Amino acid sequence: MDDDTSQVHSTPLHSVSVAGAVIRDDGRMLVIKRRDNGNWEPPGGVLELDETPQEGVAREVLEETGIHVEVGQLTGVYKNMSRGIVALVFRCTPTGGEPLPTSESVAVQWITHHQVPERMSEVYAARLIDALDFNAPRVRSHDGVRLTSAQ
């Protein structure tokens, strides 16, 4: 039993988050200005233990924006190397609701792909820009601010 215990403790711990790249028919993308840090980002958050990644995306987008979505293709996997956070990003289609600030967001907006790099850091902008590419998902690493690798 000691071997099992030591193996568990030596296993690195990661946090899994999910985010939605919510894209309307006109190409505009849903973004939030986070209440906790003031950054513009795609809506998302920590995946709960009892939900699938798709359920988590739908829940997080609704909680942060008031928008209901249909969750589609996985468009990217992003690892924050300094914090051990793995983020799964899915392309989503809005199906209803009105964009409203919530307890987690001070602003919710639909922006064009040209506005994405102007509004957010490279790490979060990549998640939305990658979602516009209909090829296989991207796999990227970053340090929390800058991308450090790409596929």
Rank of each mutant, 00 (worst) to 15 (best):
G76W: 13
V31D: 07
L88C: 11
G76S: 15
T65Q: 12
N80C: 03
M29S: 03
L49F: 15
T93K: 12
R34D: 13
E55D: 15
R28S: 03
D50E: 03
I85P: 02
P53C: 09
T52G: 03
L30K: 05
S82M: 07
A58Y: 04
D50S: 06
P53L: 06
R28P: 00
G56Q: 07
I67T: 04
D26I: 00
W40T: 02
C92T: 03
E51L: 14
D26S: 04
Q73Y: 06
A58N: 01
E51C: 12
R28W: 00
V86H: 13
G38S: 07
R34S: 10
V61H: 06
T65V: 12
G72R: 04
R59F: 13
R83W: 08
P53A: 09
G44D: 04
A21G: 05
I23K: 02
R35S: 12
N37Q: 08
C92A: 10
G20E: 06
D25E: 15
R59C: 10
N37F: 04
F90G: 00
R59Q: 10
V31C: 08
E63S: 14
R91G: 04
N80Y: 07
P42S: 11
W40I: 02
G66N: 03
L62W: 13
D36Y: 14
V22Y: 04
E63G: 07
A58T: 00
G84S: 09
P53K: 10
W40Q: 05
I85W: 07
R28L: 00
T65F: 13
T93D: 07
G20V: 03
P53G: 06
A21E: 05
N39G: 08
N80G: 04
I85K: 12
R91F: 08
S82G: 02
P94W: 01
R91L: 15
V57E: 02
M29N: 00
G27R: 01
T65R: 14
L49E: 12
A19L: 01
M81P: 02
T52F: 05
E41T: 10
L74S: 14
E64W: 14
G56D: 09
R83T: 15
V46S: 07
V22F: 07
Y78M: 01
V57Y: 03
D50P: 03
N39F: 15
Y78R: 02
T93L: 10
G76A: 12
Q73S: 13
S82Q: 05
V69S: 11
V69Q: 10
G66K: 05
N39A: 15
V46P: 06
F90K: 02
V69G: 09
E70C: 12
L47D: 05
G84F: 11
R35T: 11
G56M: 05
V71A: 01
P53E: 13
T65D: 11
P43E: 08
D25A: 10
H68S: 14
G38P: 07
G72H: 08
E70D: 15
I32H: 12
V46I: 13
C92Y: 05
G45W: 09
L88Q: 15
E55H: 15
Q54L: 00
L49K: 15
H68Y: 05
G66I: 02
F90V: 00
E41Y: 11
K79R: 11
E48F: 14
P42Q: 11
E51R: 15
D50I: 03
M29Y: 00
T65M: 14
